[in-house]
Amino acid sequence: MNDDNIVGQALVWLNDPLNWQGPDGIPVRTLEHLTMSALAVLLATAVALPLGIWLGHRGRGGALTVVAANTSRALPTFALLLIFASTAIGFGNRPTVLAAAIFAIPVILTNTYAGLRDVDQDVREAARGMGMSGRRSLALVEIPLALPLIGAGLRTAVVQVIATVPLAALVGGGGLGTYIITGLATRRFGEVLAGGVLVAGLCLGAEGVMAGLQHLMTPRPMRPVGRRPRRAAARVARAQS
């Protein structure tokens, strides 16, 4: 076992100034990774958020969200990525962004839908009773009440997309996955380990940042207090799974 050796190699690789500059440097690759992720999340949000709000508001389409969630779970991202890359979409970053976006759609859709569905019927009726139109009740009452679940969906989607983007390296794209794939191909395991740690760190960091953002995005009265966080977390977890 030369475990220490590989960890040592990874440390040397991470400390090599050459790996921190140029078009293949860690900052450039990280930025590329984050740009691709942001694009994918924006694409997915643009499709899933309005659709989820509309379906949830109308109270229809529950079956659609379930089918979307189940199919996306069973269909390997890798397969969709390869299929996209073999078509006119081409190699590189574009198929990855598309595939990541498609897999983020069900996550956002399910949570948005569940958030709006979960709004108490009495609250909805009270809004109508106060003379609000359907659209005003949606904008002023239902969406704010659904925000925690919508935020949870976005958070999961962001982390999931950042975790999916490394696959780009398998179809000739960029991002932090390149270190892993190049390292495996050249049997430089120090680089593989360093790449793996970088990607894992980015994901855990993103999870932390998104948790903070979700907290800020939740209207103050709806933030979990005291004993409630565990139940809220469990409900979110169930909505996601």
Binding site: P166, L167, G183, L184, G190, V192, G196, L204
Partner: peptide
């Protein structure tokens, strides 16, 4: 949960040097 957050590609990359290909 932390284990789950780490992307599969990264996890394989972290494991591969130790458990082999």
């Amino acid at each position: 949960g932390v284990l789950y957050t780490i992307p599969s590609l990264a996890l394989f990359a972290i494991l591969a040097p130790f458990t082999g290909i």
